[in-house]
């Protein structure tokens, strides 16, 4: 076992992990942060997307020990401490950007990664950025719409789906 320490959503956390412990398993099983989902477990679907040192990664395809000393952000840290949703989360709610909700944590984290680097993306750029995030309800139109709305752009002309 290896002792690791990292910052998760601003809080310092430690734990003992095996070499093979995946970051997503450390988050879910050790820290009980079950908002990060395991969809495919093969780095295809993006439900497990979190931020490590400010960039989006698939936490099912990164060992926990690789995040030793890192700054990790998960879906649990996106809303304000009083529960107020951030702009992306609020836009997903407003524009019905989720159906079953399973992919949503990964979608929100992927969207945050995009908007940090590209605050006013085009629709095409949003779709391109979501290449690694799969919504099995196929609710992509409203996900894209929600992300465009979260960026402060007018989405009233986008087709309702």
């Amino acid at each position: 076992m290896t002792k690791i320490t990292m910052t998760v959503n601003g809080k310092t956390v430690s734990g003992d992990v095996e070499g093979r412990t995946l970051l997503v398993d450390f988050l879910r099983n050790d820290l009980r942060l079950t908002g990060t989902h395991v969809g495919c477990d093969t780095s295809q679907c993006g439900a497990c997307t979190v931020h490590v040192d400010g960039v989006a990664v698939k936490s099912c395809t990164m060992f926990a020990a690789e995040a030793d000393g890192a700054d990790v952000a998960t879906i649990e840290g996106q809303a304000a401490p009083d529960g107020t949703l951030n702009a992306i989360q609020a836009a997903f709610q407003e524009h019905h950007g989720l159906q079953c909700g399973f992919c949503t944590p990964g979608m929100v984290m992927a969207a945050a990664d995009l908007l940090k680097n590209n605050p006013k993306p085009t629709e095409a750029e949003v779709r391109h950025h979501l290449e690694g995030n799969i919504c099995r309800c196929t609710g992509y139109h409203n996900i894209v719409k929600a992300i465009l709305a979260a960026s402060g752009q007018d989405v009233s002309q986008l087709a309702a789906e």
Partner: peptide, 9 residues
């Protein structure tokens, strides 16, 4: 290559 999260690792 791959997708944005894959490219970050």
């Amino acid at each position: 290559i791959g997708d944005p999260a894959v490219r970050n690792r």
